[in-house]
C-alpha cells in the first residue's frame, strides 16, 4: 500500500483504471436490469414488485460497504498516516450517501406496494436512516476543517466511530421485531429462488464497479485541485 503513498504512482494506475471500471460496471448493471425486468419470473407473493430488489439490494450493499471502506481508510489514516487515506475517505462519502439514499427511496417505494406503508420506524429503516445522517455529518465535518486534500484527525475518528452502526443495521432484523423481513442471503445460502436471484449478481457487481470508478474519479479530482492550488500559490509568490 505504501507504494501508493506517492500520488503520481497512484494516478498512473487510477487514470487508466477509471474508464474500465465505469464501463464494465455500467454494462453489467444494464444487463442485470434487463434480466431483472424481462427474463426473471415474478414472485409468488409480491408479483412484479419484487423486481425493485435489483436496485434496492446493491444500493444497500454499497451504502454499508461505502462506510466500511471509509472506516478502513480512517483507521489507515490514524494508524499508518497514509497520505491517500484521507483523500479516499473524502471521496467515498458522497457516493456512499447517494447509494444509501437510493436504498431508502427504493425501499420506501417497495414497502408501499407490499407492506402497505411508505415508512415505519422499525429497526432496519431507522438504522439505515441513521447511516444517511452519519454520511451527512461526515461530509460536513470533512469540509469544515482546514484540510482540503485529506481530512482532519477528528473527521477520521468520526469515520471510525460511525462504523458501530454497521453491525446494528445488519442485526436489526434479527435482534428486534421488525416490519422488514429477515436476511435472505446469509453464509448458509439464499432463500431467494435461483431464477429470481441471478440478475442480482450482475447489478451488485456492476454497481460496485461503478462505485469504485466514482471514488477513483473523486480522488483524482481532489488531488488535481490541490495541485492547481499549489501551482497558483507558487505563481503568486514568484
Amino acid at each position: 500500500m505504501h507504494a501508493f503513498a506517492n500520488p503520481a504512482r497512484f494516478l498512473s494506475l487510477a487514470r487508466p483504471l477509471t474508464p474500465w471500471l465505469l464501463w464494465l460496471g455500467a454494462l453489467l448493471s444494464a444487463y442485470g436490469f434487463y434480466a431483472g425486468l424481462f427474463l426473471t419470473p415474478p414472485d409468488y407473493l409480491q408479483g412484479e414488485s419484487v423486481r425493485i430488489m435489483y436496485v434496492h439490494v446493491p444500493a444497500a450493499w454499497l451504502g454499508m460497504g461505502g462506510w466500511t471502506g471509509l472506516a478502513v481508510a480512517s483507521l489507515t489514516q490514524l494508524v499508518w498516516r497514509h497520505p491517500l487515506a484521507g483523500v479516499a475517505a473524502r471521496a467515498i462519502a458522497a457516493p456512499g450517501a447517494l447509494f444509501t439514499a437510493i436504498c431508502l427511496v427504493t425501499g420506501s417505494i417497495w414497502g408501499s406496494r407490499t407492506w402497505g406503508t411508505w415508512w415505519q420506524w422499525d429497526g432496519r429503516m431507522t438504522s439505515m436512516l441513521v447511516l444517511l445522517f452519519l454520511y451527512f455529518g461526515y461530509i460536513a465535518l470533512a469540509n469544515a476543517g482546514d484540510e482540503k486534500v485529506g481530512v482532519s484527525k477528528a473527521t477520521a475518528i468520526f469515520g471510525l466511530i460511525g462504523a458501530v452502526n454497521l453491525p446494528i443495521i445488519n442485526r436489526s432484523v434479527v435482534w428486534w421485531n421488525s416490519l422488514h423481513q429477515g436476511p435472505s442471503i446469509t453464509l448458509r445460502g439464499s432463500t431467494i429462488a435461483p431464477e429470481i436471484l441471478w440478475p442480482l449478481a450482475f447489478t451488485t457487481l456492476g454497481f460496485t464497479l461503478m462505485f469504485a470508478a466514482i471514488v477513483l474519479m473523486r480522488m483524482r479530482t481532489v488531488l488535481a485541485t490541490a495541485k492547481v492550488e499549489a501551482r497558483l500559490r507558487r505563481l503568486a509568490g514568484a
Binding site: P41, P42, D43, Y44, L45, Q46, V50, M53, T114, W115, G116, T117, Q120, L179, Q181, G182, P183, S184, T191, I192, A193, E195, I196, L197
Partner: peptide, 16 residues
C-alpha cells in the same frame, strides 16, 4: 386502525 403486511425472506416463482 392500520394493517401492514409483513412478508418473509423467501422469494420464488409462482409455480415452484
Amino acid at each position: 386502525d392500520t394493517i401492514l403486511a409483513k412478508h418473509d425472506e423467501r422469494y420464488m416463482p409462482p409455480e415452484l
